[in-house]
């Protein structure tokens, strides 16, 4: 097959099923494209559906990759009752820990995706983008992982402590988070989302043991993935942080795409998941994309692609989320290198 015979959407859909493709797909990844429309990444931007849609559209045009990615803007924590800080040009942060005991966990509000000021803007942006994108390219959304949300509500250090001393409290919070994730996914689905990205660093081996992962996190992650798929979207799960010790368990989530950090070799992951799920990621977001040059990125991406056994079933993308001040020329170099070296 020669280059660019497929639309972006066809390419991704076929790659997920390990079917023949014209070239490997590439995602620019998840970072705020606000500066492409001369905006700062702040509350005003995150609640402006037209600006979000325009920025994401411009980002797709600019980077010329295989997906339109709605930025990390959903802020379910506020809907749970947390108060937050919105720094100028950075991601929002929780001001105070919300859950410190069972009473507080019981008192958590039930997030309503249609009342969440940030998420309603994202839903509207999804609808705008779906109309513009047609059948050419997928609109990809973002819902944080169950443990990531729980850690933001409980405080990461406290949550690690509760995992050892009061696991029922963690279960209680995760139960509410997983239910909310499914509600948000349903709303996303109604707006026409086609892929939902779920990062969950807090349940990865950089934080908890594989045993704790299986017992405490996996059941909720399975529910979230099923919720995404029931909403009509592909589920892309990112167990971020030293993933190898749980690579035998993550398949139980039955996600469509497993998205790995640079700590995993994409070719090894592909051999493990071949014909079951696509694999994605592993381009080093710090050493190459943030600190490197286009030439360094080109060589790095070539190496990743050259080591793949199958020229399908893999999506090249940054190993994790990128900062808003990432070097655009390096992200572009990653896309160009995939187009060059990922041809079939």
């Amino acid at each position: 097959m020669s280059t660019e015979q497929m639309t972006c959407k066809e390419r991704v859909q076929a790659a997920v099923k390990y079917e023949d493709i014209d070239r490997l797909p590439v995602f620019k990844g998840y970072f705020s494209p606000a500066r492409l429309v001369d905006r700062k990444m702040n509350y005003s931007f995150f609640t402006d559906a037209e600006a979000i849609a325009e920025a994401c559209w411009q980002a797709w045009k600019y980077f010329d990759d295989d997906g339109i990615h709605l930025l990390d803007g959903g802020f379910m924590e506020e809907e749970f009752g947390a108060d937050s800080i919105w720094p100028e040009n950075n991601y929002p942060m929780i001001n105070h820990i919300l859950v410190t005991d069972h009473e507080a966990a019981d008192a958590l509000k039930e997030p309503d995706p249609y009342k969440d000021s940030v998420f309603t803007a994202i839903l509207k942006a999804t609808e705008i983008l779906r109309k513009k994108a047609g059948d050419e390219v997928m609109v990809c959304g973002f819902i944080n992982g169950t443990f990531n949300y729980a850690a933001r509500l409980m405080g990461t250090e406290n949550m690690m402590n509760y995992l050892a001393t009061d696991p029922e409290l963690v279960h209680k919070v995760c139960r509410k988070v997983a239910d909310a994730q499914v509600r948000y996914a349903k709303a996303y689905g109604e707006a026409g989302i086609e892929l939902i990205f779920m990062p969950d660093a807090t349940s990865a081996p950089a934080c908890i043991s594989p045993k704790t992962y299986g017992k405490m996190a996996l059941p909720y992650l399975k529910e979230a993935v099923k919720g995404f798929q029931d909403a009509g979207a592909l589920a892309m799960y990112h167990p971020c942080g030293g993933e190898y010790p749980i690579i035998d368990q993550i398949g139980q989530t039955k996600a469509d795409i497993y998205y790995f950090s640079e700590l995993v070799e994409l070719d090894v992951a592909q051999k493990i998941f071949v014909d079951r799920a696509a694999v994605a990621g592993t381009v080093n977001g710090s050493r190459e994309l943030f600190l490197g040059t286009p030439e360094i990125v080109d060589e790095h991406v070539k190496g990743i692609i050259d080591r793949l056994k199958y020229r399908t079933g893999a999506i090249i993308m940054p190993g994790c989320g990128l900062s808003p001040n990432c070097k655009y020329e390096n992200v572009k170099a990653m896309v160009d290198a995939t187009k060059e070296y990922g041809k079939n």
């Binding site: 690690m160 402590n161 995992l163 001393t165 934080c207 908890i208 043991s209 704790t212």
Partner: peptide, 14 residues
């Protein structure tokens, strides 16, 4: 050696 993870380390630290 990844025999202990954050929960165990935090409890021990306390």
């Amino acid at each position: 050696k990844q025999k202990y993870f954050l929960p165990e380390v935090i409890i021990s630290a306390e």
